[in-house]
Design a protein around this nucleic acid. Structure first.
Lengths: 200, 200
DNA sequence: CGGAAATGCGAGTATGTTGTCTATATTTTC
DNA sequence: GAAAATATAGACAACATACTCGCATTTCCG
């Protein structure tokens, strides 16, 4: 960041800019993410924006940091103490849906569209690692060990499946549908309790 | 399309342009998809490109049409005649992985990044409908009917979960990993045979 | 052949975006 | 209450991109 906001007024301005940036990213995607649009949305002049953010990417980073922190905290809470599988799945799904309901497509834009190769590489990788790690511990907890089952691979498949469902629902504005929530819980429970093997 | 190619030379040119467009889209995403870049990649002048495609979006549409046709045919084949659940899942996964191995991130870019709201709306919706429909018939075939299970919702969750896994793997260049293939088959079988209900 | 039609070319134009700079307004400090 | 610090707005330069236009080259067909 180029300059630290010292007065309350400027802190509010910076906050408004970051919030506007998240909004624009979510609605228009990385391709529509222009600094002028962000400034306009924030009700702030373009000069003001550049007073605090040296360039477009640093603004992106601010949004990324804020959003990832939020999602991680949600996930952490859902797997806090020992609970039965179904309870865990329900809380996880509820949390993920809540986290994505604010800016429905922001998460996907940050992961897929926006450039991640910058000074933020460490932060980005760290987020991914933490993210996967939560899933891995959940898998280790709820899935009975069986030969040939690579915990990390299972965690990766599970997390990307959940992300796919959430993100697809976000695109259609279907995050609130209770049927979605129920089926996603079903999917998680079915996969982790490993019942597909019947038909083998 | 602006002009129909009549001679063999121009047909090859158009083909090269579409192929280059798919390549650029897959590698650089929608944000990096510039007409100049496509022309350069195709080894063709920018004027030539605009001789056949009236604007950037029509070029995008050509790519979309070609790719979606391909994916649909793959899915159609995998669910051709009656087979046990596991066999169906294996063929579906194999086909999806094969379809995404050519331009690993193209499908995701087409669905998520590139604008879909244009004259192509009908084509796009039609693809989505057909796509979902294949999953819905599979769900109806392999999932035992139970009260409160909305076939369409299940199909939507299943398809977006599979897409999520495939796209995530494509992003990391992990499509070829056999562990992924195996786990994805597990996921599908587990969900469709509905074993998560044990813990309820 | 040879003329007409089809195709290919790439500098050029209009538009939009990033990031800077300066003159003015507001807030803080003492 | 005046001077110093800070915030704001919007014009502006430098650059990138979508798309056009006039002309050169290739192919077709009698």
């Amino acid at each position: 960041m180029r300059k630290q906001p010292r007065q309350a007024r400027s802190r509010a301005t910076v906050e408004a800019i970051i919030e506007a940036a998240a909004h624009v990213l979510s609605r228009l995607g990385w391709a529509g993410f222009t600094t002028n649009k962000v400034a306009e949305t924030a009700g702030v002049s373009i000069g003001t924006l550049y007073q605090y953010f040296p360039d477009k990417l640093s603004l992106l980073e601010a949004v990324r940091r804020r959003h990832f922190d939020h999602v991680l905290s949600v996930i952490r809470d859902s797997a806090e103490d020992q609970k039965p599988l179904r309870k865990f799945a329900q809380e996880l799904v509820r949390g993920m849906i809540a986290a994505h309901s604010i800016h429905p497509t922001l998460h996907q834009v940050l992961l897929d569209e926006a450039p991640g190769d910058r000074g933020s590489r460490a932060a980005h990788a760290s987020f991914q690692a933490q993210y996967l790690n939560h899933y891995a511990t959940a898998v280790a907890t709820y899935r009975k060990p069986r030969k040939g089952a690579d915990t990390e691979a299972v965690a990766r498949v599970l997390s990307s499946a959940i992300e796919g469902v959430i993100h697809n629902a976000a695109r259609r504005n279907m995050l609130a549908a209770p049927e979605l929530q129920k089926q996603l819980v079903e999917l998680i429970c079915a996969y982790l309790s490993g019942a597909g093997r019947i038909g083998r």
